[in-house]
Amino acid sequence: MSDMHIDDFKHEALDHIHHHLKTYVSVFVALMALTVVTVLASYLKLSLTATIILALIIASIKGTLVACYFMHLISEKKTIYLVLILSVLFIAGLPLLTLLAKYDVPVN
């Protein structure tokens, strides 16, 4: 790996950055809009289940946008995906299995 290569890489990044800036701004606008949508939706007085599902869907979209674009996860390396997949699997297991344990009670 030579320094030449790094310079090329940086140069390429410089070309791309202006393109990226546009993406960041559109993500920002989407996040702002989705925030307003989620607040307005909460005033609709839907049923509790519908409110929860809607709010969580919107939050997940927003979260994905931040992670993918601001945190550059969309073009990240394998190692990092692996670490995150592990932690997401484990943290999904915690509430799921705990809830199962809570509701699986012996019948008298």
């Binding site: 989620t38 607040v39 909460s42 509790l48 409110t51 929860i52 709010a55 969580l56 919107i58 939050a59 927003k62 979260g63 931040v66």
Partner: peptide
């Protein structure tokens, strides 16, 4: 915070 806000304020 993106998750905290709806979970605590809106649900």
């Amino acid at each position: 915070w993106i998750f905290l806000f709806p979970v605590l304020y809106l649900l």
